[in-house]
Every structure is written in C-alpha cells, then in structure tokens.
Design a protein around this nucleic acid. Structure first.
Lengths: 176, 176, 176, 176
DNA sequence: TATGAATGAGGATTCATTCAT
DNA sequence: AATGAATGAATCCTCATTCAT
C-alpha cells in the first residue's frame, strides 16, 4: 500500500472516530470525508461501505484496548491499579459504539474474537482483584464489565469526573 | 379540546416515548403514528413538527419528575430515602433523551423552567442529605444530578442493576 | 386504494414502460417520475425499489399476453391465425426486458408461473399449427417461442416490418 | 508506437469487446482494465474516454466486416453464398452495439464512412443475389441489412440457431 | 377532522475521469 | 510509461413535512 494511501486511511479513521465521539453515529459519510480533508470517493475506496468503516473503527479501538489489557495483565502491580489504568484508558472513548450501533451488524468474527479476549482478560483481572481484597465480591466479572462499559465508554467521559469517581468508590471492597 | 383529540394526543406521546425508549431517537414519524394507531396527518395536526413532539415528551417527562420530587420534598422521611425513590422513578426512563437528542433544539423556555425547578428541588434534597450525613459531601448538587442522569436515565436501566447499586454505594457518606 | 393513487400508479407504469421501450433499462427513477408527472417519493411509495417497478411491468405485460393467448386458444380459427394475432400483439413490446434485465432478479414466483403458462399455451398452439400443416415441423415449441421473442419483442418492432414478414414466411410449412 | 503499447491497446479492445458481448454495455472501465490485465490509467492513456474506446471497438468491428465483404464481393461464387458467409461471420458479434449504444455518440466520420461502405457492398451483393434469383425481390437492400442486423448481430446468436435458419429460409426467393 | 398520498431535500453509493507516485 | 489512488457528479433511496381526499 502506498504511503499516501495509508496516511489517508488513517486520517479517515481518525476523523470518523472523532466525529462519532462528538456527535454520535449519525454523521454523514460526506462529513467524515470532509473532516479527513478528502472526497467521498476516497473514503469509499478505503471502506466499501458505512458498515466497513464502523467495523474498522470498532476493531481498531478494541485492539488497542486489548493490547492495553494484555500489558496490564503482565505487570507486577495490584490488580486494582490495573483496573484504574483501564478506566483511564477508556474514559471518553465511546467504545459504547460497539454495542449500540444502529447498524448493529451481526458482529464480525474478528470483532467477536476481540471482545471475547477482552472479556477474558478483564474477567481474570476482576477475579484477582476480588481475591486481593480490593474489589467488592458481590458482582460477577460480566457485571463489572457491563457497568464499566456504561460508566466510562460514553462521549465526554473523563477518568476523574464525578460519575467515574463515585463508581470506583462504589466498587471498592468495603472495609472489613 | 375535545375528548378524542386529547386521547389521540396522549396516545402519540405514549407511543413516541415507548419507541424512543426501545429503539433510540431514530424512529420515523410514520412508525410513531402507526404505533399510536393513527395516520401521520393526525400526528402533525397535534405537533407541527418532529421538534415539537420531542419537546412535548421532554416536558411531560420532566413534569412528572418534578411532581414526584415535589411530593418527595414534602415527605417526612430521610432525604436518602427521597433520593432512592427518585432513582426508582427514573430508572429506565431515557430522560437522557433530553440532553442527547440530535435535534437538541435551543431548549424551550418551558423546558428550561422545568429543568431549573428540578435542579432546585434536587439541589435542596442533595444538600439536606449531605447534612443528615447520608450522602457524601465532596460533590455539588449539580454533579450529583449529572451523574444520576447518566447512570439511571438510559434505556434498559433498572433500579437494582449493578451500575445503579454500585453508584448508590459510592454515593453514601463514608463511615466516620 | 384511493382513485388518485391508482391513477398515479398507472401513470408510473405507463411512463416506465414507455421509457424502457424507447431508451432501454438504464433510465433513472427520477426521469420515470418526471415522465409520470410526479415526484420520486411518490414513485417509491408505489414501488419499494427499482426491482419492484420492473417486476410490476414484467407481470403486467406478461398477464396481458397470457390473456391474449388464452382468448386465442379458445377461438375457432386456424392456429396460424392465432400465431399471427400474437405477433401483432407483441410487436414493439420489449417483452425482451423479461429475459435481459440487468437486474435479472431471481425471477419471482408469479413471473415464473406466468411464463410457464404462456409457454404452455404457446406450445399447444405451435403443435396444433404444425398438425394443421401451417407451421414448419422442424422446430420445437421452445425454439419457436425463442425466435419470436428475439424477432418481435424488441423496441421498435412492427408487425409488418421486414424482419417480421420474412420470419413469418420462413415459419410457414413448405409447400408439399 | 512501441510494440508493447500496441499489444496493450489490442488487449484492451479485446477485453472490452468480450465484456460488452457477455454482459452488455454497462461494464465499468475498471473492469475492462482489469480484464486486460492493466490499470485504469493505462486504459486512459490509450483512450481519452469511454466514448473513444467504444468508437474504437465499433471501428475495428466494422473494419473487419468491411474487409470480409470486400473479399466476398471479389469471389467467383453465387451471391447467396456470399450472404451466407457474412451471416456466419457476424453471428454472435453484437455489432448491434453500434446502433444501440446508450452513448450513441453522433457517429464519427470514420464510422459513418465505414458504414456507408458496408452498406454499399452489401447493397450490391443483395441486388445481385436478387438478380441471380436466390434472394426474394420485395425488399430493398437497406431492409435486408436492417433485418440481418437484428437477427444475427445479437449476443449469443449462432449461424445455425433457429432464428437464423428461419430467417434465411424466409429470405430465399420463392420457387417460381 | 382524520387519513394517507405526494413532495423533495438529503444521505449512501458508484463510476468515469484526473493526477500523484 | 504504468499504476492505482483521489475526485465529485449522478443515481438510488429515505423520511420529515405538506396537501388533496
């Protein structure tokens, strides 16, 4: 792939991610192309249709998250710290897209695999955090994943905004 | 207004609210009319355009909430109980609509008035809850309102789902 | 269905048939709508998409042909006359559309049924014409149908143009 | 012109002719280039636009036909044989393209000249065939050309298919 | 007054054509 | 010179809104 083509592809993904984050999934292809400084045609050369673009964004976002979690899993720090790091990583990234796309395509294989891996990694971290005594014990890993999803994967979320703070406090294991 | 006209208007609001709750803000006017058992023409007789319908839903939802809060404010129970009651009231009602509508019209006067009143009532309740020692003290009333909005005013929220539970725990004043 | 709606529907079919006949299957929906004196939206209210419009035209054309053949089959005249009558009926009607549609949808059930019925009727007529000694015997009914299709179902065909005349002469049984 | 350039040009014409024959005039430039094993850019280096490519195909097809007719005209065989030879030559070549192209450009000079020459040659052959008593006399040369055009210059036509056979029989002079 | 048909602007997508590599 | 990426006008289709019945 030519250098400029790769650069354009990246610009498109960035522009789309930015616009989706700010204004939701309703943004038009024209606008995305314009925001990337390109014509629609170019956008469609890189992504055969709207679905494909969204799929790419989803995969890219999920891949980065998975890599982050893998790295965290390997570190020698309390699991609670790993959770915090993930919260900081996700805050403001509308991963939410992934579940609430209007175009909710029958999730692609790659996407499903990524999601399964992420859930696996997070599940382990959650269990270990519960065992180390930092995370409350009355929630299943799935529930934790689910609530993190709503709480931090929304447009405008910040790692230190009130909802995130309160939620983290609510997640801490109660003093014995 | 004739009895049947009023009935039709109510049906429309109900249908629209239901559809928006279930399927998000993308529902078409045709669908709403159909769900209300009416023709589009009738819908437009009651509401000059989409904006007006959404405004009406917003006002109606907000009015009910305000009334609920007024009632709560007058009761002789701990303020924490009043907050709980509000959480139960809101859970699953996508009041969120109000802030995240794509058609976020420059908020109408009536709506602004309602929102101000609700914020006022909630502000009082929050402050009193903080004074009675049940609610943590490091948040302003506005912040509490904001986080409640995200946490409970979303499609599918329930008063006893993990996010709500955790958030309420996180809101409790820490043991001294 | 309201009177005006029915009228519009007919206008659309007529306009589309006319344009397809004159200029082939590439005509745009906009043009068809305009030729019918309507907006595109109206066209799409009557036919959910291009395919549906073409299907309708096909069915309508085939139905008329089938009725013509049924009537002919029942008449007490030489089969050769019936064939002539069909030739006159088809000439200039681009039934050809039916086989050469770019959008060659997997033929609808109704269409397949019509085509089978037409082939059945024509097959009988052809066989009987061969028996009465008016039609040459070295062709199967399918072949006769096929060549009639090319020869008379094309834009601009006329029942008395040279190709039709020559073809009919070529079809006559040779003098014994 | 360099040898490889000439080879590329020929490949393009062949590919385009093949695709038009098989799938009609709707084939995209990209596809043609690909079928020729080249990039679009190269295609456009040889032909400034779609029109030019089609014009080239037309001219090339017509030139071959003219040469065939010239050769036939010079031969010492019955004119009926020459007609048969031409039918065999044309069958399955959608010369039809020439008249029914959507892009029916105002025929180029070269093309008009070729067509006139072809009509001239064919006209002579037809007249002589009528004089030698093999071809029916009630048709003008133009009419003969026209019907041959429809009957044999269509995708899939074969020199021995039913339509061609019947048509040739219909063209024979009736026994006296 | 209620209905649902008609309208047309707007969004997705394709493809002939141009241009940077 | 060859390649294939970029462009944008044109086409299909949707849906908020208007209007005839």
């Amino acid at each position: 792939m030519r250098a400029d083509a790769r650069r354009n592809r990246e610009r498109i993904v960035e522009a789309a991610l930015g616009l989706f984050t700010e204004r939701g999934a309703g943004v038009s292809m024209e606008e995305i192309a314009q925001a990337a400084g390109l014509g629609v045609g170019t956008l469609y050369r890189h992504f055969p249709d709207r679905r494909a673009l969204i799929e790419e964004i989803a995969q890219s976002t999920l891949t980065v998250l998975r890599d982050h979690l893998r790295a965290g899993a390997a570190e020698q720090v309390p699991r609670w710290e790993v959770l915090l790091s993930m919260v900081r990583h996700c805050a403001g990234r509308p991963l939410a897209l992934l579940s609430s796309l209007p175009e909710a395509s029958p999730q692609s294989d790659t996407r499903q695999r990524l999601i399964r891996e992420i859930h696996g990694l997070l599940g382990d971290i959650v269990e270990q955090a519960q065992q180390e005594g930092s995370l409350r014990r009355d929630l299943t890993p799935e529930q934790v994943v689910g609530l993190l999803n709503v709480a931090i994967c929304r447009p405008g979320a910040r790692a230190d905004d009130p909802l995130t703070t309160v939620m983290l406090d609510g997640l801490k294991a109660p003093a014995p």
